[in-house]
């Protein structure tokens, strides 16, 4: 029953929270650049405006895939916040990513194709670390179920510091922040700004935006899970600090190449993630 409440709360509240986070993100970025920045509700105005624009598609598949991206981002989050299987969450999230890539491939435009290819490389970069994170949770608590992991008395970050740091690393990729915002960026100073979303417009782009809000809330929920046993306030503060660091990184780094992205993400997964798992395994015995 509590699981259902969590899942429904996610479906209803995540767009609100995600939109507010996006708004605060934009204000914080602007302040870091000595600007005032937009109102905090700006992302909501943007999405409402996109919804009121005329529906213009290159191919109907764009709309279909964007809808599937949103759907599976919601499914992944609902499983997670409903206390379901962590592995299933990671796989649903990957599926959502695949639909977004298919949507970017569909119109056959060069920019959008580059964006799609880079998004695939990004997925290749972050997927191992996400799986290691799920596996780490299992090894530390004996369960893949989010509610069991959540109820575990000792904080996961204590047993899995390496996995946690690795997770923060791939979070930068997943949140589309510099230096890993290869496929689509929030800022207009990169060589390819809207690669992945070039061909999405109006209402279809709104679906992608809202899907991204859901993803953001889910990922921050995953960070929270690692800190949960420290108490809600400490954990929440931890999540805020993590997100602020992501915004800081976004503003001080230039974009890296895909080679460096994949190599560094895998190195981090191997060194921080896998070593941590081995340590947990042998210390248990």
């Amino acid at each position: 029953m509590t699981g259902l409440v969590g899942a429904v709360a996610f479906v209803v509240l995540a767009p609100v929270v995600g939109g507010l986070i996006a708004g605060l993100d934009r204000i914080l970025s602007a302040r870091l650049q000595a600007r005032v920045g937009p109102p905090v509700l700006q992302p909501f105005w943007d999405v409402l405006k996109l919804l009121s624009k005329r529906r213009a598609l290159v191919t109907v598949f764009q709309e279909y895939y964007a809808g599937c991206f949103l759907l599976f981002a919601i499914v992944a989050g609902a499983i997670f916040f409903g206390g379901g299987d962590l592995l299933l969450t990671v796989f649903s999230l990957a599926l959502a990513g695949v639909f977004l890539v298919l949507g970017a491939y569909a119109p056959n435009s060069p920019y959008s194709t580059i964006g799609a290819e880079r998004e695939l490389l990004q997925m290749m970069a972050y997927e191992p670390m996400l799986l290691i994170a799920a596996l780490g949770c299992f090894m530390a608590t004996g369960s893949f179920h989010v509610d069991a992991i959540y109820a575990h008395p000792t904080a996961l970050v204590g047993r899995l510091p390496g996995v946690f740091l690795g997770l923060l690393f791939v979070l930068t990729i997943k949140l589309r922040k510099s230096p890993f915002d290869l496929s689509a960026s929030h800022h207009a100073h990169q060589e390819l700004v809207r690669g992945l979303t070039t061909e999405f417009s109006g209402p279809t782009l709104a679906l992608v935006e809202v899907g991204h809000w859901y993803e953001t809330v889910l990922l921050l929920g995953l960070v929270y899970l690692f800190l949960a046993a420290l108490g809600p306030w400490v954990a929440l503060a931890g999540v805020v600090v993590v997100y602020a660091l992501e915004v800081l990184a976004d503003n001080i780094f230039a974009r890296l190449t895909w080679r460096v992205t994949v190599a560094s993400a895998w190195t981090v997964a191997a060194i921080l993630g896998a070593t941590n798992l081995l340590a947990v395994h042998y210390l248990k015995q």
Binding site: P38, V193, R194
Partner: peptide
């Protein structure tokens, strides 16, 4: 700072 008014240069 025209982003104050929600203006974005999309390109």
């Amino acid at each position: 700072d025209v982003e104050r008014f929600g203006i974005v240069n999309t390109g």
